[in-house]
C-alpha cells in the first residue's frame, strides 16, 4: 500500500470520453473529496477524455472550493493529460468558482439552503 499520490482517471470514473454531465462530474468530485479528506494528494488524469463542459468541471472541481481551502487544493490536487484548451476551460471554471464562493450573498444562500432556509 502506498502513501503516494492517488491517481484518479476521469475516463474510468465516468466510463465515457464525453465528460459533459453535471451528475458525472459529481462522481469525480466524490472521489477527489474522499482522497483529500484522507490526507492524500490527488492527480486527476484526463487521458482519453474528448469533451468537457463547464457543468462537468463545476461539479467535479469547482465545488471543492466550498469544502477545502484554496491552499489545500493547490497543494494537494494536480491534473495531467489535459489539452491546452481544456486547461483553459478548467482555469476559467476555477476562477469562477473562487469568485462564486467569495460572494457573501452566495455563501449566505448556501448556508440558508443547508439549514433548510
Amino acid at each position: 500500500m502506498s502513501n503516494g499520490i492517488v491517481i484518479i482517471k476521469v475516463f474510468e470514473v465516468v466510463g465515457s470520453k464525453l465528460c459533459v454531465a453535471s451528475s458525472d462530474g459529481q462522481k469525480v468530485h466524490d472521489q477527489i473529496a474522499a482522497a483529500l479528506n484522507a490526507g492524500k494528494d490527488v492527480r486527476l488524469s484526463f487521458s482519453n477524455v474528448e469533451s468537457l463542459t463547464s457543468a462537468f468541471l463545476n461539479a467535479a472541481i469547482g465545488q471543492l472550493y466550498a469544502e477545502f481551502s484554496e491552499q489545500k487544493i493547490r497543494g494537494s490536487l494536480s491534473v495531467a493529460d489535459m489539452t491546452t484548451d481544456d486547461v483553459e476551460l478548467l482555469k476559467r471554471v476555477v476562477e469562477a468558482a473562487k469568485q462564486y464562493f467569495k460572494n457573501p450573498n452566495q455563501v449566505k444562500k448556501i448556508v440558508g439552503e443547508n439549514l433548510g432556509g
Binding site: Q26, N58, V93, A96, Q106, I110
Partner: peptide, 13 residues
C-alpha cells in the same frame, strides 16, 4: 446557482 456547485460559465463560453 446557489448550491455548492458553481455555475455561470456555460452561456458565456
Amino acid at each position: 446557482k446557489t448550491g455548492n456547485i458553481p455555475g455561470g460559465l456555460g452561456l458565456k463560453l
